[in-house]
Amino acid sequence: MERIECQWCKAQNEAGQSTCSTCGAPLDARNKVSDSGWKEAPRLRDMTEFRFSSSTCQVEGELVPVAELNLASGDSVFFEHHVLLWKDESTPLSALNTGGGIKRMLGGMPHVVSIAHGPGRVAFSRDAAGEVVVLPMHPSMEIDVREHAFLVASHSISYSFVRIKGMTNVLHGEGMFMDRFVTSGEQGILLLHGYGNVFERTLRPGEKILIEPGGFLYKDSSVTMNTVQQNVKTGMMRHGMFLAEMTGPGRVGIQSMYVHAGAE
């Protein structure tokens, strides 16, 4: 039987489908790749629906998209509490302490993530124009995500975080948190919200790219990230311009809209 491979998540789909049943990416649209090798994250069509576990996710709207989940009994998802747009009254919620409370509070990060349990519907959105990025995670995958970009993740994914010292933070100027998502024996789905447009590039082993830290969105854990400083001299003053040096192998995702701490 003829199958179509999704260009974004590589899942196999039945012939005749217009969107990927695993990540929602259009199957009938050309893959957009720039000359420099950045692939655009697929723009999910309004009302696109895809499945994970026994549940479904429908992405609604295009400017600030909403991810609406219909959770089956036994399924659950976790999220930062302020991204919850609406829920059925009967959908149960619980909380999970992430640890590192005071440090995360000082860093502007929530130290408790919320969990919604099926059966029931919940919907999530962030606070600015951008894209929902769907990252299906196979068993034994590890993805690092910039702080405040995580929208929602399925229960089969484990969640932790690391603090990156010296990396200019979008909001606080010193250091940033990076969320870490790991799957073990089961598949999972991770949804991010990227501000502006989102692009992904796969780096070869040893290949390097320098990224403005505010533009970093996610990376495979196999990609190493180091802070490099470019000294910029202007008259009597010297400015340090910090960039994140990413070294492959693995995927790197960036967002085109961010606020540079030094520009405020």
Partner: peptide, 8 residues
């Protein structure tokens, strides 16, 4: 090359 449409 201009890439993207929301924040190009």
């Amino acid at each position: 090359q201009v890439e993207g449409t929301t924040v190009p």
